[in-house]
């Protein structure tokens, strides 16, 4: 068991219980935070865009080329932009901090 800490678009941080093997997008969606995730995790829509806290960036698997391709379509990204459907949660990511990108 573990948690992720998600800051919403109003700056409020939510501590969400995480589930081993779930996509971070799914954890956020299941807790009812506003995340569109239109394509449902197929890495095809870029509507689950998050900013990962810099100190966590290194601990994640690097983005694959198809994720980079989708990030290319976003007009505004940062150095730590990721698609949360491409981050699978495991115990090593207990305490992961991220911020929901603009809707």
């Amino acid at each position: 068991m573990g948690y992720i800490h998600v800051t919403d678009r109003h700056g409020k941080t939510h501590n969400l219980e995480a589930v081993e093997g779930w996509r971070v997008m799914e954890i956020i969606r299941e807790h009812g935070l506003p995340i569109e995730a239109v394509c449902g995790g197929a890495c095809e829509c870029a509507t689950c865009h998050v900013y990962v806290a810099p100190e966590w960036q290194e601990k994640l698997f690097p983005a694959r080329e198809d994720e980079e391709d989708m990030l290319d379509e976003l007009p505004e990204i940062s150095q730590t932009s990721r698609l949360s459907c491409q981050i699978i949660w495991s115990q090593e990511l207990n305490g992961l901090q991220l911020t929901l990108a603009g809707g």
Partner: peptide, 8 residues
């Protein structure tokens, strides 16, 4: 001209 893909 901006081609940032599509949103829903």
């Amino acid at each position: 001209l901006a081609f940032f893909g599509l949103n829903i």
